[in-house]
Amino acid sequence: MNTTIASNISLSFSQRLVAGTLALMLGLALIVGVGFSSDMAVHNGAHDARHAAGLPCH
C-alpha cells in the first residue's frame, strides 16, 4: 500500500513507542556499560576503545 521509500517500517504509534523505547534503553545500557562503567575490570578491558571513542575516561 505504501509507495514511498521511507516506509521500510510501518508501525502503529504504540508499536513505535515500545520498539523505540526498547532499542533506546538497550543502546544506552550498552554505551554506559562499555564506555562509562567505573568497574576497574571493565575499565581495563575497554580502555583503548574508550579512549578512541573520545569518552571522558579517567
Binding site: 521509500i5 521511507a6 516506509s7 521500510n8 517500517i9 508501525l11 513505535r16 513507542l17 520498539a19 523505540g20 523505547t21 526498547l22 532499542a23 533506546l24 534503553m25 538497550l26 543502546g27 544506552l28 545500557a29 550498552l30 554505551i31 556499560g33 562499555v34 564506555g35 578491558g45 575497554a46 580502555h47 583503548d48 576503545a49 574508550r50 578512541a52 571513542a53
Partner: peptide, 29 residues
C-alpha cells in the same frame, strides 16, 4: 578486547540511533 568493546559500543550507538529514529517517526533508509 578492544575489538569486542568497539563492537559492543557500535551496537549500543546503533540501537540508540534506531530508538531515536523510531520514536521520532523519522525512518532511516
Amino acid at each position: 578486547l578492544t575489538v569486542l568493546a568497539n563492537m559492543l559500543l557500535g551496537a549500543g550507538i546503533a540501537l540508540t540511533l534506531a530508538g531515536v529514529s523510531t520514536l521520532a517517526n523519522m525512518p532511516v533508509n
